[in-house]
Structures are given as C-alpha cells and as structure tokens.
Nucleic acid binder design. Sequence first.
DNA 1: CAAGATTCCTGGTGGC
DNA 2: TGCCACCAGGAATCTT
Length: 274
Amino acid sequence: MPELPEVETVCRGLQQNIVNQTIKQVKIHQSQLRYKIPQDIVSDLCEQKILAIKRRAKYILVHLTKKILLVHLGMSGTLNFYTEATKRKKHEHVIINFTNGNVLCYEDTRRFGCILYLNKEELINHRLLYNLGIEPLSSTFDAYYLIQQCAKRKQPLKSVLMNSKIVVGIGNIYASEICFLSKISPFIPAQQVTMTQCENIVKATKEVLSAAIHAGGTTLRDFKSSEGKNGYFQQQLHVYGRVNESCFNCQELIVKKVLAQRSTFYCVKCQNVN
DNA sequence: CAAGATTCCTGGTGGC
DNA sequence: TGCCACCAGGAATCTT
C-alpha cells in the first residue's frame, strides 16, 4: 500500500505528535512480521525518548536516545497515534505507551511490514538500506541520472521506475501515474527512452509525488495517516484504478494490463501504446 | 545475469 | 447466506 507519499505523510504526523516524548511501556501482541521482532527490545525501549523521525525510501526511522527503530509498512501497515488508551484493533501488533498518556500502535493486517531495532552502525550497513537508489524528490534525481540508468536496461520503463535500486519510493500506483503524466508507454524498453522523455518523466515524478504528499497520500483501502485521516490524492489519480473509464485528456477508455505481476493502467492514445 | 515467478499474510469483492 | 477464486499499495528470494 504505502508508497513514498503515504510514508512521508505518516512521518510528518509522527513529527508533530511523538517527538520529545518518552516511552513508558511497549507491548508486542504479534511479533511475526516479515522479520520476527525480538522480544527483548521491549524492556530496552522503556525510558527512551523520541529524538527525531526521518524517512529513507519507504522506511520510517524513529531515532531514540540509544538506538533507532526502522519501520516498514509493507502493503497494509499504518502507525496509529492516539492521545489516550483505546481498545486495541485486531491487527495492531505493537503498542507503545508514552509517559504523557499518548499511544502509538503499529497496525499491519497482512504483516508484510517489519520493525527492526538497530544502532547507528548497524543501520548504515544494513542490507535493506545500503543498496537503495536515490530519493526521487532530491535534486540528484534528474534526467541525466535516469537516462544513464535506462541506457543499460531492456526492462520496461515502469519496472525501472519501481526498481528501488535505481530510485526509491515509487510503487505500483505512482508508476502508472508517472507514465501517464509523461505521456510514455509503461512497456517501452528503458533503452529506448530518450533524453527529452527522461526530462518529462523526472518532472512528472516530482510533481505527482509532491502533489500526493500535499494531499496526505492516497487511500484506496487501508491507508490512514498516523492521526487516522484518509489521504485524498485518489481523487487526482489519472489512470490507476480507472479501467474502462474515459481518459481525462482524450476520452479514450483506460486500459489495464498485468506487467511483471502488477496491474498497470494507461491510455493507449495519450501514451502511444500499441 | 537479467527478468520473470513465487512467496509471505489477511481481507474485500464478485460470481455462482 | 455460503463457498470459492481472485485481487490488493511491497520486496526478498527463488527459478528460468
């Protein structure tokens, strides 16, 4: 579920709500996520203060007094913030109580997410992080970088955009949107993408991700911000989920096709797809 | 080695 | 109403 804009939305909520607070108690109800959460972190987390919340790719980094919690939301994860104790929801696997009465819950129905507890050294060298590509909203993500990466690959453009070793944070929804906004076929072999097209792709990427962050992310099913709010970027989606509806640009019907096991939406006419 | 397929897990939806 | 097949925003790990 959550792609970069949704993770960023969660991070911004946490920055507002839990920085400077001190952990009083942690409960793990279900430790079996993508990786098993070690039970012994529970006692170590107590009395630690939240120093900062950062994001790298789709990972949330919770900087604590001693170490760092690395949180990934997988397909169905959210972090729920409450100002007081509430009845635990079915898939709230980890509950963090703060000394001021606030509560943060990790909820993840499908349990594809993960929570790791690492020191700075372990974080920097972690295999999940050190192979990651660049941030799409940073200035290093430009047309020169993209065409270099495309030039050596035969894969479809959409797969390149979703390859986190090249550029991070772009998932299945935004990849379709980016291809539409830059008027290029998601199926075109990366090698064939021109410099001008790379400029358009980079521009579209930054625009769509920024707009989605501004809208608080995209809520199709599970996603909510840490404050329980829906995102509303789904209202601005041009192709994702719009199969057989007419293109906002040319009225042609939007087509859905599976590419690399993922649903892909596009306009045959606007994106010049055969 | 690149690219495609499978896998982890739960729940919603649509067909019969 | 029930049962079943299929689908879902991710990404590591296989197999080809």
